[in-house]
Nucleic acid binder design. Structure first.
Length: 490
RNA sequence: GCCCCUAUCGUCUAGUGGCCCAGGACGCCACCCUUUCAAGGUGGAAACGCGGGUUCGAUUCCCGCUGGGGGCACCA
């Protein structure tokens, strides 16, 4: 088995594209076959600088490796189409010599007018075959004289073309629905149609995997393989991915590149897992798989052919699962790296690694995205928290009309904490509960005030653990500061 | 307009003629746990697009319609 991922350098690969790479890679690795990268850059006008590096980066991030490619070469080098021009020329000449193709001198102006007329008449657009009637002698003469021309493949006739797609079975179409399409452009570059056939053949690709959008033109490719005398490969057309709304995947709705997902705090394992099972399933219940496991069980035949909508919520859930299941040291490292990036600059660097390790177990199941971490734990780092306004403290029913009572409770807890002998989560909890009882308040009501005072947040990691990590001194001062803000006089 | 692909809960899917008054997951709702929020546990609502066939019997096979997606470039 030899499979290739053949991106065009037109920007960052989006998720649909990447899923194709994942499936192709999984298929190759499953069968012990080769996986290679080939750059399809025959359109000189659409090149985007840096694309190739971004493509490599996306693949590497996901843990996809390749056996041959532009960067590492291989037995069929070069792996960049713009460096393989002579090969396409040879193939085109062979097609010309065998009568499967002809030179076309029609100008783009004539082509445009023709199309316009066809559409006005309600006909389907397509080349009318004018130059097909030219004698070989005349065509050769005009070309030799330097007249601009393209090479067209003789596709249109009375017959039918049948091909087999691995996922859909046999597909037969009538050739009259096709026109004679261009295989070699006037700039001497091949079109995709010719280039990929020549390359996939020469590179011994066994399974031509690609997006669904190629299905309608697959008959063209089948005809070229035949005309060139090549044995056809197995065609596999992958479904597209739809946006969350079921419409086309667009930049608006998360048609993001995987690199952007990395940026937002998704981990590679989750993204790989999610994309692998989007439109593919192993059985009726399993959804969480490691890369290794997927490699073992992946089968192209289990892909469902209808387009799947990208479910961001499920991806988030899965990312949370990956984060929770990760070994703690690894998670701590991830948090540290992320916090270094996200925490405000006034927090001194390097960040206290021991501190991060201390709170990691308490926030790991509260985080779905790495990008959420900073907002959850910033108070551990700040010298003083931004104390919420009084209305924040008094929003609970118990304290609504009792700022003095709230301040008093805070002071009582501060006194308790200050005098606490044993500094442990259990001791802190016991003492705080005892204090609440002693001042005849409900524990929950008091804890809410403390949470606000110590973390500055309504939603935070568990209180007692948090206090233990924040430390006695800081806790007490934050408690007293909040109390003073609520009721200046004792 | 023409051509191709496709059709199970809101979403991703299992299902390959009877096991299905359709199973799992995300999401949603309720309850439990609980110092907040999560996580976790339990339970619940939620689907075979429509019409014809074929068959003793169709979610499963065939046809049509409708819906969805894609394609009709000297782009890939």
């Amino acid at each position: 088995m030899r499979v290739r991922y053949a991106p065009s350098p037109t920007g960052d690969p989006h998720v649909g594209n990447v899923r194709q790479a994942i499936w192709s890679w999984l298929f190759a690795r499953h069968s012990g076959g080769d996986f290679l990268i080939r750059l399809e850059d025959t359109d000189q006008t659409r090149k985007v600088p840096g694309s190739l590096e971004r493509i490599y980066g996306s693949l590497r991030w996901l843990g996809i490796d390749w056996d041959e490619g532009p960067d590492i070469g291989g037995p069929y080098a070069p792996y960049v189409q713009s460096e393989r021009l002579p090969r396409y020329r040879v193939a085109a000449d062979q097609l010309l010599a065998d009568g499967h193709a002809y030179l076309c001198f029609c100008s783009s102006e004539r082509l445009a007018e023709m199309r316009k007329a066809q559409q006005a008449a309600g006909e389907s657009p397509g080349y009318d075959g004018l130059c097909r009637t030219l004698s070989v002698a005349e065509a050769t003469t005009r070309a030799a004289a330097g007249e601009a021309h393209v090479v067209r493949f003789k596709m249109r006739d009375d017959g039918t073309t049948t091909l087999v797609d691995l996922l859909r079975g046999e597909i037969t179409v009538e050739n009259r629905h096709f026109d004679d399409f261009v295989i070699l452009k006037s700039d001497q570059f091949p079109t995709y149609h010719l280039a990929h056939v020549v390359d996939d053949y020469e590179m011994q690709i066994s399974h031509v995997t690609r997006g669904d959008e190629w299905l309608p033109s697959a008959p063209r490719h089948a005809r070229i393989w035949d005309a060139l005398g090549y044995a056809r490969p197995t065609f596999v057309h992958f479904p597209v991915i739809l946006g969350p709304d079921g419409g086309k995947l667009s930049k608006r709705h998360g048609a993001k590149s995987v690199l952007e997902y990395a940026d937002e705090g998704y981990v590679a394992g989750a993204v790989f897992n999610f994309l692998a099972i989007l439109g593919w399933s192993f059985d009726d219940k399993t959804e969480l798989f490691t890369r290794a496991r997927l490699t073992e069980i992946f089968d192209l035949a289990d892909i469902s052919v209808n387009p799947a909508a990208f479910d961001t919520q499920k991806l988030e859930w899965m990312n949370g699962v990956y984060l929770r299941d990760m070994p703690e040291p690894e998670l701590t490292a991830l948090f540290a790296e992320r916090l270094d990036r996200d925490l405000p600059t006034d927090v001194a660097r390097p960040l206290d690694r021991a501190l991060i390790a201390a709170f990691t177990p308490h926030i790991r199941e509260r985080v779905k995205l790495l990008s959420e971490v900073a907002g959850l734990v910033d108070f551990f780092f700040a010298a003083s928290v931004v104390t919420p306004g009084a209305d924040e403290f008094l929003s609970a029913k118990r304290w609504r009309d009792d700022a003095a009572g709230a301040a008093g409770s805070l002071r009582a807890i501060a006194d308790t904490i200050e005098a606490l002998a044993d500094w442990s989560t259990a001791a802190i909890e016991a003492a705080m509960r005892g204090t609440a009882e002693a001042i005849d308040e409900k524990a929950g009501d008091v804890f809410t005030l403390c949470r606000l005072a110590v973390t500055g947040k309504r939603i935070a990691p568990p209180l007692f653990e948090t206090i233990e990590i924040v430390g006695r001194e800081t806790t007490v001062s934050r408690l007293r500061a909040a109390a003073s803000a609520l009721a200046p006089t004792v």
